[in-house]
Each structure stands twice: as C-alpha cells, then as structure tokens.
Simulated assay, not measured.
Amino acid sequence: MTICEEHVARRNFPTAAPDGFPASIMLSFLATAGLFYVNIMAAIVDGLVSGLGITESAAGNIGAANIYGAAFGALAAVFIVKRVSWRPLSIACLFGLIAIDFGSIFLQSADMLILVRLAHGVIGGLLVGVSYAVIARTDKVDRTFGVLLFVQFGLGGLGVMVLPRLVPVYGVAPLFIALALFSAAALAMLPFLDRYAPREKPVSSTGGVLWAPLAMTLLAIFLFQAANMGLLAYIIRLGIDYGLDRDYVSTALGLATWVALAGPAIVIGLGTKWGRFPILLAGMILTLGGTAIFHLSSSPAAYMIANCGTGITWGCVMAYLLGMAAQFDTAGRTAAAAGFVSKLGLASGPFVAGRLLGADMGFSGLINVALVGLALSMVVMLAPARRLDRKGGA
C-alpha cells in the first residue's frame, strides 16, 4: 500500500460500498469523463463543420486525433496502473481535461484544434485506462461495465439531442463547455470512491493469462469500435445527406440513444447468467441488420430504427467485450489494454470514414465498409466468449 493509499484508507470520509450500484455509477462517470466526447462525436463533427466552417474531412481528423491521443494515453495506463495511486492521478487528469476543454472554445484553426485535442485525448485516455483498471478490481466487472455504457448512452443521447441545436446560435462553445462540466461532475464524485487496491486473488478461474483468447478479444474490440464509430461520427451528416431535416436527425439520435439504454441494461440484469456466447451472437446478428438499414435512411422511420437497433447492440456487446478482457489479469492491466485497443478503434473509424468520404465513396460506401468490419468482429469475438463460458469466467 502506498503512502497516499494509506492516507485514503484512514481518512474520515464517507465512501460508497466498493461493489454497490452507487460505486458503479461513480466509477462510470470517472471512466466516461475521459472519453465523453466520443458519445457526442456526431454533434462535435457537425458543430465543427457548421459552426467553424471546417471541411468534413478536417472535422473527422480532429475527432480522430482526439481519440488517437486517448489510445496512447490508455496504452500508458497499462504500464503504470500497478505503480501509481489511481486517485491523485485521476484528479490531475480531470483538471487537465477541464482546462483544455475551456481553452478549445477560443480556437478557430483546424490544425491547432488537432494538436490541442490530441493532447486532450492523451490525458483522457490515461484517465479511462486507469478507470478501467479500477473497475477490473470490483466483484461485478460485467455489471459495472454495463452501468458505464448506460451512463454513456443516457447522457450522450441528451448531448446529441440538445447540442446540435445550440451550435448555429452559439458556435462550438456549448460542445466544449458540456465536456468540461462532465469532467467537473466526475471530479465531485471522486472522493466518495473506495481505495480499490489490486486484488490478491485471481478475478476469474482462468488462471494465468490466455494469450490467444485475449488477442482475439482485443481484435474484436478494435474492429467493433472502428466500424461503429466510423458511422457514428458522420451519422448527422449521413441523415442530412439522405434528405432528412436537421432537427429530426438530432431528435432521432437523442431518442435512439436513450432507447439504446436497453443494451447495457441487459448486461446489468443478466451478467453472465446465460453465458456470453449466445448474447454476443444474437447481438451481432442484430447489429449487422441494423447497420444495413442505414441504406434506407431517406425514410425517417428507417433512420430511427437503424439508430435504435445498432445503439442497443453497441452498448450490450461492448460491455461484454470489456468484461471479457478484464478476466485475463488480476491487477487490471488487460482491462487497461482493452481501453487502449478500444480507443484505437474509435479513432480509426472516423479517420477511415473521412478518407472514404473524401474519395467520393459516399455514405453508401461507408455503410458497406462498416458492415464488413462488424462481420469480421463477430467472427473473432465468439471463440474467446465460448472459451470463457466453458471455464466459468465470471
């Protein structure tokens, strides 16, 4: 136990039960704070295009830079989660995020925004990686990741519903203020969390690290996140390109994101009671079907259905994949590694999507590429899921 952890352990301050729902919610806010811009990425990309006059390709590059920075921050977390006290590091990261978000309000240059948001991503990714490692030290890993996705989808839905309407009036300021306020909320919750020291006993019955299933799980996370995020980053532009009204698109996305809360709710309710394999198989089949429906986005109903369907499965599948990755290590390093790979996928999606749109492949081509990525992800994820189910990884 470090000196800092001894101090926290002895402090006379009320803390939530380490494996209770309040703690899960607060851990979810902490993990989300470093990456909340992903949940409102569609609003950010649209805001940069319509508010600052930046090209769609440049706006995608800014979003990609933010998430690539997060990937490297999450990678750094893999190597330091056992060596540093997570609480003071989290505090420093949150203050850094707040400062950069407020500073971003005054930037007009796409090149400068790329650099600044890259730095923001590094700090945020470090925070997320550390948070994932802490979550891996709880008794209810899958449930906590379900709560995490529930928080992200719920507040993300509010963001994509409200923020795009403010951009034409106030510019990009509301986008970055919203991010800063979320970090401030996470900062306020931090003192109420328990110590979450590394465990002495294995988290699951898998024993040592199973490298092949771990590698397959990480690859599945990368492909799944990249394919989904490539579409999500441009989902507002996609709807408008298919002839839908901007207000309808914003409302549809917000409502769909709230409907998508059913995905993480499934994880919270079921956990691993029925195993991961059957749920992942069903979830991925629905994901492919929902993504294909985006080809019919000229119909408002089809656009809504596609967003609702893919949103539900995104939250469900990702919670299980993150929970799977957390089973391979007792200190949270594989969970932090999953955070790195997840961010890498989230960054690569908008980057590739911007290139596809820049090459005049159109949104129809973008949808088809996303379908291929999702299909590959499904093939890769099912084998480690079945193996963990057979070994009883909880």
Score class of each variant (00 low, 15 high):
Leu210Ser: 10
Ala173Cys: 04
Val162Gly: 07
Leu166Ala: 12
Pro164Ile: 06
Pro168Asn: 07
Met189Ala: 15
Pro174Thr: 05
Arg199Tyr: 07
Ile177Phe: 10
Ala185Arg: 06
Ala186His: 01
Val151Asn: 03
Leu190Tyr: 00
Met189Arg: 06
Asp194Ile: 01
Phe192Glu: 08
Asp194His: 13
Leu149Tyr: 12
Val209Arg: 15
Leu193Tyr: 02
Ala173Gln: 09
Ala197Met: 10
Leu155Tyr: 10
Gly171His: 03
Ser204Gln: 05
Val209Ser: 08
Pro191Met: 05
Leu163Gln: 04
Val172Ile: 15
Lys201Cys: 05
Ala186Phe: 00
Leu155Phe: 15
Leu175Ile: 13
Leu187Gln: 02
Leu155Ser: 00
Ser205His: 11
Ile177Asn: 08
Leu155Asp: 06
Val151Pro: 07
Pro168Glu: 03
Pro174Phe: 00
Gly207Arg: 10
Ala188Phe: 11
Ala173Pro: 07
Val203Pro: 04
Ala188Asp: 02
Leu190Asn: 06
Arg199Met: 04
Ala185Leu: 15
Val167Arg: 05
Pro164Val: 04
Phe176Leu: 04
Leu158Ser: 03
Phe176Tyr: 12
Arg199Leu: 12
Val151Tyr: 00
Pro198Lys: 06
Gly207Lys: 08
Ser183His: 06
Ala185Glu: 00
Ala184Thr: 10
Leu155Val: 14
Pro191Ile: 01
Val167His: 03
Met161Asn: 10
Gly156Ser: 08
Val209Thr: 15
Ala178Leu: 04
Gln152Pro: 06
Arg199Trp: 07
Phe150Asn: 10
Arg165Met: 08
Gly207Tyr: 01
Pro174Ser: 03
Gly208Ala: 13
